[in-house]
Design a protein around this nucleic acid. Structure first.
Lengths: 195, 195
DNA sequence: TTTGCACCACTTCAAGCGTAGTACTACGCC
DNA sequence: GGCGTAGTACTACGCTTGAAGTGGTGCAAA
């Protein structure tokens, strides 16, 4: 079991790519080696088994997600109205849709979590924290809507992204902007703007 | 390539179970044989390759979903107000949560569709039709809300089910009923009932 | 009698895993 | 300043496992 943290991180990043591109079926130690461009057997030296690998991928995934300081600050600016929320949601959808591999890998991890208690615990904890952070941010910053509003947005947008990433033609690219706008409008409280 | 349709259907049903329980990684011809309790090699005789198997699973899945005539009739009864919609949504969530294997298998298929054009075409078509049917039913039956409302409900409830089936402790069972109620209330138009 | 399927057994194949063995690098110690 | 040691990278190999597919036999129905 090797220690080199940089190399370990590189292997985990490679694993995320493999997971997104080839699916859980294609995620093998060898495939990770190839993706990370390291010699065969390297992944074997860093992870004791498949379970270990997947759990560490989960950790790594959220480790990479952390750095959002500048973005959070930027989001704190501007008005506090419904249009602002809509704008933020558009940003969110665009950002995730623009880097599909991370999100697809997370979906694969979710399905794996069905069979792996440790992975399930990890993901549950991180996602609860994520939702709670969203709620806190939203309510504290004075944006319209309460905790339930945030959850409803979370639910709807997550599935919209799934739909975009797995079956892009169900909601074609050209209709997404309008669709996000409309859905967010439906979920937010208060009177709607005439558009 | 054998013809016996009953046996083929039984194999596909077995494949759905395997897909849900073991994931895409565990879906092998042999595993299908075992699950369907037929001799080894049988699946080989019915499906030319993995791609063929997955595509046929997709077909079979929707073939099994069709028979909803009595249910649709029952849904057509009763009032046409917001509470009625909430009730219908509760039924929906409960029904799907009660038979996880079908939905989990469909999620696996979605991820596979990322890499399999034919499967992607099939799923896209069926899901578009499904959404459209929901919209048509909803609007024609005079329930509150327009097409966008239905889509918003579709998005939110789908992800809620994902959350329940993959990481059940993120939204614990005990809170689901209240959560569904609240989210549906947020999405439906018009004044809210005081609860 | 012929055709198609069920069943079983066996061969073949390939992928992947883990590790033994070797070489390199850096660091600390004498 | 030379040397030993520890940790790591790299290469290659052997082994295990698992799966796929196919040929052959028996059977049943048309």
């Amino acid at each position: 079991m090797r220690q080199n943290p940089a190399r370990r991180a590189a292997l985990l990043d490679a694993a995320i790519e493999v997971l997104a591109r080839e699916g859980a079926r294609g995620l093998t130690f060898r495939a990770v080696d190839v993706e990370a461009k390291v010699p065969n057997g390297t992944a074997s030296n860093y992870f004791s088994n498949r379970d270990d690998l997947l759990t560490q991928v989960g950790h790594r995934f959220y480790e990479r997600l952390e750095p959002d300081p500048g973005l959070l600050a930027a989001a704190a600016e501007g008005p506090r109205d419904r249009d602002r929320v809509t704008e933020l949601m558009h940003d969110l959808v665009a950002r995730i849709s623009g880097f599909p591999s991370g999100y697809l890998a997370l979906l694969e991890l979710r399905l794996e979590a069905t069979r792996r208690p440790e992975l399930r615990r990890l993901l549950t904890e991180r996602i609860r924290a994520d939702i709670q952070a969203n709620i806190d941010y939203h309510t504290k910053s004075g944006l319209p809507g309460d905790a339930t509003t945030v959850i409803a947005l979370y639910l709807a947008l997550n599935w919209l992204i799934v739909e975009r990433l797995t079956l892009p033609d169900v909601f074609p690219e050209s209709e997404i902007h309008r669709l996000v706008t409309d859905v967010v409008e439906r979920i937010l409280p208060g009177p709607r703007r005439d558009t």
